[in-house]
Amino acid sequence: MRIGQGYDVHAFTAGSYVTLGGERIPHVRGVQAHSDGDVLLHALCDALLGAAGLGDIGIHFPDSEARWRGADSRGFLRHVRELLQQKGYRIVNVDATILAEAPRLGAHRAAMRANIAADLCLETARVNIKATTGEGLGFIGHGEGLACQAIALIEYAPEGTGPREGAGPETGSEAVPV
């Protein structure tokens, strides 16, 4: 089992929506970003990549490359899932906390969870999304931007073995049942 954490932040700019979890959510502002600026999916990508020791989103999708301008971050998340599968990892669950004063996210949470579950080939119950405000403090509280923290749990499970069985990718030792 391996754990990774991710974090992403974007400043608000002119616009009429923000993209979170693959959903376009109406808002009085947009986000300043090279891709679609989906802080939720970016933080999840970093958590998953970190858990597998595969760097971060900037290594795989650098903002210096024009091909990623305006890119749909759901494609990033699906690509990260494929990278993990190629290395013999299975995603166990993901959990994220969106930090924003606005927009309100409750009405969009089920759709965001469904998008992420579909992209990661997980049951929706293995995807959790929470939201909180900055209580008027800092750049979040002042409404200058939004951020997301994420954590992911993965397990080494090469094809043909069950969960927690087989050798680990680095050591060659037997995994310990939990």
Results as ranks from 00 to 15, higher is better:
G30W: 11
V18D: 02
G55V: 05
H10D: 14
P62D: 08
G75Y: 09
G22R: 03
H10T: 12
V18A: 04
L40K: 12
F12V: 05
A96M: 03
R81M: 09
I91T: 03
G37W: 02
D46F: 05
L44A: 10
F76I: 00
R81F: 01
S64H: 08
G55M: 09
K87T: 09
H42G: 02
A33S: 15
L20Q: 04
S16R: 10
Q85I: 09
R69E: 12
R74E: 09
G88A: 05
S35T: 15
A11N: 11
I91K: 06
S16V: 04
G75C: 10
Y89L: 11
G88D: 01
V39M: 04
N93Q: 11
C45R: 00
A96S: 11
R90N: 10
V94M: 03
H34V: 12
S73Q: 07
V31C: 07
R67I: 11
I25H: 08
V9G: 06
G21C: 08
G70K: 10
Q85T: 11
V92G: 01
P26H: 13
G53Y: 04
A51H: 01
I57Q: 03
D38H: 05
L44Q: 06
T13F: 04
D36E: 11
G15R: 12
L41H: 00
A43F: 00
G15I: 15
F61S: 01
S35H: 09
L40H: 06
G70F: 08
A96N: 02
Q85R: 15
V28Y: 12
K87A: 15
V18G: 02
L41C: 10
L84S: 08
A14T: 14
E65G: 05
I59E: 15
D46M: 02
R67V: 13
E65M: 14
L44C: 09
H42V: 03
F12P: 00
T13P: 06
S35K: 06
A11I: 08
G88T: 02
L54N: 00
D56C: 07
G22H: 01
L44G: 02
L83D: 10
R74Y: 02
R67K: 15
D72I: 12
D56Y: 12
L44S: 05
S73M: 01
S64A: 14
Q85K: 14
L49H: 01
D46C: 10
H34W: 14
S64P: 07
C45M: 12
E23I: 15
V80Q: 07
D46I: 02
H42T: 08
V28M: 09
G58W: 01
L44F: 05
T13I: 10
V28P: 00
G75M: 09
K87F: 06
H10S: 11
A14E: 15
V39G: 00
V39K: 01
R29W: 11
G53L: 06
V39A: 04
E65P: 05
R29Y: 10
L84M: 14
R24L: 12
E65W: 08
